[in-house]
């Protein structure tokens, strides 16, 4: 046990608790551990969208929370708000909105986005106050730590940590080499 694996493995693997976009039987699964207040994740957001468009039904994309709350004080509530929106069937809408409005992630804005998306904002307010999804966000975080996430964003392609560059062309090429 003197060295850890150079290619860290995703644990647990993608399952029913995950938020996934794309077909379940897609040959490619891209998992992102991200933080809604992290500028690098904000930069990765349109790139992932682009890659999703380019690969269509070949790709399933999964997002797991990895908020670094001591340096990004709004990241925790943003993550919980996305989960709360998820409970109302709108995880991805909220995920997208948060990255598109990364400059305004205080509680008032989170609730404003919920209203704009046609969600029950009062319920989300209650969820944030009660920390309803705090344990779930922490579970994501711990799974990331154990999987070898060392910063945000960290990507896993078909369960193996992707350590390459995540500019559009590199990420797309890394995924495409795995398509049968």
């Amino acid at each position: 046990m003197s060295r850890r694996d150079d290619r860290a493995q995703l644990t647990p693997s993608v399952g029913s608790r995950d938020h996934a976009s794309g077909p379940k039987d897609a040959p490619l699964t891209l998992v992102e551990y991200g933080d809604f207040q992290c500028p690098h994740c904000g930069k990765a957001y349109p790139i992932v969208k682009d890659v999703q468009r380019a690969l269509g039904s070949e790709l399933r994309f999964v997002f797991r929370n990895f908020p670094l709350t001591k340096i990004h004080p709004e990241a925790e509530h943003a993550a919980e708000a996305a989960e709360a929106a998820g409970a109302q069937g709108a995880f991805w809408q909220m995920h997208d909105r948060l990255f598109e409005r990364q400059f305004a992630l205080d509680d008032d804005h989170l609730l404003e986005y919920a209203t704009e998306l046609g969600l029950d904002a009062d319920r989300i307010r209650g969820d944030l106050e009660a920390g309803t999804y705090a344990a779930r966000v922490r579970e994501d975080f711990i799974s990331g730590v154990k999987s070898g996430v060392n910063g945000t964003p960290t990507f896993f392609i078909n369960g193996v940590r992707y350590d390459g560059s995540w500019d559009r062309d590199s990420l797309l090429a890394a995924l495409q080499t795995l398509v049968p």
Binding site: M1, R4, A8, V145, G148, V149, N150
Partner: peptide, 9 residues
């Protein structure tokens, strides 16, 4: 960044 997985293990 070596991460924390090795430490936890």
């Amino acid at each position: 960044n070596p991460g924390a997985d090795g430490i936890l293990a």
